[in-house]
Nucleic acid binder design. Sequence first.
RNA 1: CGGGAUGUAGCCUAGUGGCUAAGGCGUCUGCUUUGGGAGCAGAAGAUCGCUGGUUCAAGUCCAGUCAUCCCGACCA
Length: 477
Amino acid sequence: MAERITPRSENYSEWYINIVTEAKLADYSPVKGCMVIRPRGYALWERMQAVLDGMFKETGHQNAYFPLLIPESFIRKEAEHVEGFSPELAVVTRAGGEELEEALIVRPTSETIIWSMYKKWIQSYRDLPLLINQWANVLRWEKRTRLFLRTSEFLWQEGHTAHATQEEAREETLRMLEVYRRFAEDWLAMPVLTGVKSQSEKFAGAVNTYAIEAMMQDKKALQAGTSHDLGQNFAKAFDVTFQDREGRQSLVWATSWGASTRLIGALIMSHSDDRGLVLPPKIAQTQIVVIPIFKNQNKAEVLAYAEKIRDSLKGGFRVEYDPDDNNSPGWKFAEWELLGVPIRIEAGPRDREAGKAVLVRRDTGEKIPAAFGDIPAKVGSLLEDIQKSLYAKALEFRKANTVCISSYDEFLSFFNDTDGGFAESPWCGSGECEAKIKEAAKATIRVLPFGNEQRVRGGCVACGKEAAHLAVFAKSY
RNA sequence: CGGGAUGUAGCCUAGUGGCUAAGGCGUCUGCUUUGGGAGCAGAAGAUCGCUGGUUCAAGUCCAGUCAUCCCGACCA
């Protein structure tokens, strides 16, 4: 049997890239660092889009679209923003056969162009809150890229909201973080930590950045979505004020939040194994594949039976049927496993005679016989069970690889002498300690989790001084 | 941008300076098969990344160059 996927234990990075390319999700493009998303990969993105978009609408947001190109002067208006993004900007200086008077930046994110419009749109408290989301592509010229996880161009959604009060903006920031958490956990079966980023890890231009952070199977952390409290930074930069009920002019409060095609990478690295992709049923574009197993002499009857099974599932599930007689059943089993389809139904002559079929779980490989009439009910409960157990398994993995460390020696040893994982450690809050740790352990603060202040024990893991936070440290993507 | 590695058919790999560059996978044709990546027979497919050099002779040695991968640096 030809193994197509490198085992995770040998080379995690190669394992990951193998799955992406063998499952035909994406390829590198002729443009360095950019990615071609193939139909199978895009189908996953479309499912994610549909679910997230629904969640945004439920929370009162509307979609709109803003230009790809941003005048250079816009980016320069917010000091931290321009500083953070400058190194990775792509710039258009010529168009229409001549030098442009002002260079145009290919958007790395759309705060500036959106706030230039919000200035025109917002006059009164009656115009607030303004709750807009955009589905778009952005470009950041990264030095080192990896399919889905960090590509120069990527697809995402970015929400940009404007509010009358700081309080309201903060609520929005946390509300959208919670949307991301629910999406990651309920749909992707990917447990995440939520919390606030340290000042050195926050978005350039934000007051605070909140994030969902997941653990991949190599125990590294992946930031899977962010929600920023922008304070009045962009309102000041673009002079966006409104008149309140009392007739006073005030600056608007802002948030922005985004999640990208990186979620596809997160999904792959959370659940997949050495046989290929493993997709949670709720997000899988195909939940069930029916594979007839036949010989020439009984082909017609077996196909008719398999089709009957397929038809009995059509209404309630996303089901595919693979009667192709160029490939053997074994080949198909391996292929559909590579593609991550949660349940395979084998229907052969023996099953037909007994009025049964064999259901096979992708996640465990368990084979479950079922009578024809029971198949839809059984499939339904199996899919739910797979969804739950993928989540449980990932959560278990994260717990097993999360340790509380308060001694610096132990901390360094955890990251330098072992495979590492998440370290929950007390931190004094200083950037110096953070930098020292990054240098010595290559670990960064992923998140300061909510509601953990009372769990702080002892002094800062790096300097020993009084610790204000319990921080989660990890190596990250 | 620094360190390391690799470029041989669509993919993977072999190839001691010496004759017509070898094998596996895949592809195509035919037959036979189908409950875990089938079998047999046949066929197509390579200016050995590119440029230059050393040599009677270069896939093999040297230099340059380009590309890719890994490890760093960088990464709201």
